[in-house]
Design a binder for these strands. Structure first.
Lengths: 228, 228
DNA sequence: ATTACCCATTATCAATATGTAACCAGCCTG
DNA sequence: CAGGCTGGTTACATATTGATAATGGGTAAT
């Protein structure tokens, strides 16, 4: 998933600074606007995933800004305001705000409320899938496919393969592989490796007798190669 | 639109009375539950449009109740709690609560936040019906059909199935499934899992001895597959 | 009070993964 | 060619993990 963009519309410079730092350090892209007019323009041009709107803008009443936004903007809008009166809260929510936070707010809570608002409508994020030749490996889902059908790998086989994939192109020594998959107490059980390398090759190579992905580096270890 | 139903789960009698009167006089139908267990049961039977959940229930931790609800319940959940700590708020929102109000609350604000939550919830209430083979699963309505006749699933079975459907294709580890469905205290009760997987298979697979949807990943967990 | 049902729990049997060893095949070196 | 490396293959006992049926406690509906 690419970075999500949040538009901050607030005339108080310290608040904007705080929000910018907080949001950016949490992986959001931040756009800023100081006035209502600027805010509405930036909302149109940049189509942010979420808008943080201060009710107390200098050039226009916040409620009016929210109503204008809601004529076309469907993503979440969270109000941030010094006003804690019930009237302001009720009006804002009924005008289509998704949430209302009173300044000063706790940044942890703000971030949680942003996550909550963004969650709605967000389906599942795609996993990183490595694909090459007739193989596809989805590390997050723990799924390996060959010619589009799922291959069953045992725990040990999968650990080995995942190690290889994450270190594609590098030579992995016997000792390293044994330490990572079996643990530090198995450093000289190279025999285990031979057995499991053979099983992996049987499952993922087209011709296990002439492997193109899991290459033997005699006397050293093995290397995993992604051929295009 | 017909009357919308709200389920109040709270053990304090005065609060329930207050909420009942307030909500009913604003056109909502109200159901009540005093304990976590009762609340979960009523949520299943009545499928309310929104749930108001008190975190401080006598029989079970509120965060745990919310997580159990969220394994299958997709409508808005608003937390009402005397706890105002940032930690409780952040955990609740990240567990899928739509909003968090601190007791004592202002009824006007509560009503506005309910309207807001219902508005958003209805927008995102898209086609959550998954259909494949001779099965159809409607997550929102909590209905599972096989060959067009409704299958009865227990709470636990449905939680499991809903988890699988939302993570189709991925391997779900034993630990993850146990944590989500039974809670973090059951992480090594893998035998529960086996029992319930068997029951689910009996109900949804054509041939439970040769499952095609719920696939065992030996030593790791299970995977749910939608076959076309 | 009776019934039905869900759930947690246990016992038992079956399937699968793992560690291990025996054996085989090149390959280098003398 | 013999002998010692290194790596590959196969088979199998054991240990681990999984499937299934059955039990009893608890609870809600009738």
């Amino acid at each position: 998933m690419s970075e999500q963009k949040i538009l901050v519309i607030d005339d108080e410079s310290p608040i904007r600074k705080l929000l910018q730092i907080t949001l950016q350090s949490n992986g959001y892209e931040v756009a800023e606007a100081i006035t209502a007019k600027d805010g509405l323009a930036k909302a149109i041009n940049q189509l942010p995933d979420l808008i943080l709107l201060d009710l107390g803008l200098p050039d226009e009443d916040g409620h009016s800004v929210l109503k204008k936004l809601r004529t076309w903007y469907t993503n979440p809008v969270i109000i941030i305001s010094v006003q804690s009166s019930e009237e302001d809260i009720v009006i804002s929510l009924d005008n289509g705000a998704n949430d209302y936070l009173v300044k000063p707010f706790r940044t942890g809570e703000l971030l949680a409320r942003i996550r909550s608002a963004l969650r709605v409508g967000n389906i599942s994020d795609e996993n990183l899938v490595i694909q090459f030749n007739n193989l596809s490996i989805d590390l997050a889902a723990r799924v390996v496919k060959k010619n589009n059908s799922i291959i069953k790998l045992t725990l040990t086989e999968y650990s080995l393969l995942a190690l290889f994939v994450r270190n594609e192109g590098k030579v992995l020594t016997h000792r390293y592989l044994l330490k990572e998959v079996w643990g530090p107490g198995y450093l000289n059980q190279t025999q285990y490796l031979r057995v499991y390398i053979a099983q992996l090759r049987k499952k993922i190579e087209d011709d296990p007798n002439r492997p193109v992905h899991i290459i033997t580096e005699s006397g050293v270890g093995y290397r995993f190669i992604i051929t295009e």
